Amino acid sequence: MSLVFYTNPMSRGRIIRWMLEETGAPYETRFLRYGDEMNSAAYAAVNPMQKVPAIVHNGQVVTECGAICLYLADAFPEAGLAPPLAGRAGYYRWMMFAAGPWEQANVNAALGVQVTPEQSRMVGYGTFERALDVLLSLVPETGYMLGGKFSALDVYAGSHIGWATQFGSIPATPRIAAYLDRIQSRPAARRAAELDDAAIPEYGPAA
């Protein structure tokens, strides 16, 4: 089995690092610096978008964070990161919501893009406020997004919530803080953060 992980420690690759650690599968990390390394022809052969993260599993390339999380949950079922097939409606629905409408809304807001009421019919999220309300509705009082069992949805959507809280676009309410503590205190989450934090001095944007 071959599993190669392309990333930068200050990128969305942190989500995939966490997911990989949750699977317990062995993998090789290849850090890429922003600039020439990420824009090289060699990496374009892996991901023509020339961005991280990406994985190559047994010769199969997977890019885009949401897709990688879904793939890894299926590739390593023994980790129990995906619900049974019959119970995946909400799992797929909210993974794609976080990957699409929420990320678009959050990035546009961060960039200062003002969407008019007329334009709201064209964008995939309507309004930032609507997308935020939907995202926050996923945060449970207890347990995890799909109930009592942690899943890849908590890794992916939970990472978005963690970042948005850190940068102030989501309020750090007691319910959100408690949920983030539950997921971020997991051993795999801690290991992943330690590995990426240790690599920042060498591979971060300022390196």
Rank of each mutant, 00 (worst) to 15 (best):
G112H: 09
V61G: 08
R186L: 14
I176R: 06
E129M: 08
A109R: 13
M95L: 15
G80N: 12
P205Q: 04
I16Q: 00
T7H: 11
V46H: 02
A25L: 08
D181F: 10
A75Q: 12
M95C: 02
R191Q: 14
A199E: 03
A82C: 09
G148R: 12
L111N: 12
Q166W: 13
L195Q: 07
A189N: 04
A207Q: 02
P117D: 07
G24C: 07
G13V: 01
T142M: 09
P48E: 15
A82W: 00
Y71L: 09
Y156V: 10
L70T: 00
A199R: 10
L138W: 05
M1H: 13
G162N: 11
W18N: 00
M10S: 09
A206Y: 14
G59P: 05
E118M: 08
P201K: 03
I16D: 01
E21I: 09
T29Y: 00
P201R: 09
R190W: 08
N39G: 12
L135I: 08
A198R: 03
L85P: 15
L3M: 10
L136H: 04
Y43H: 05
Y34P: 02
A157E: 08
F150T: 03
Y91N: 04
Y92G: 06
A178K: 11
L136C: 11
R33T: 01
Q104P: 07
T165E: 13
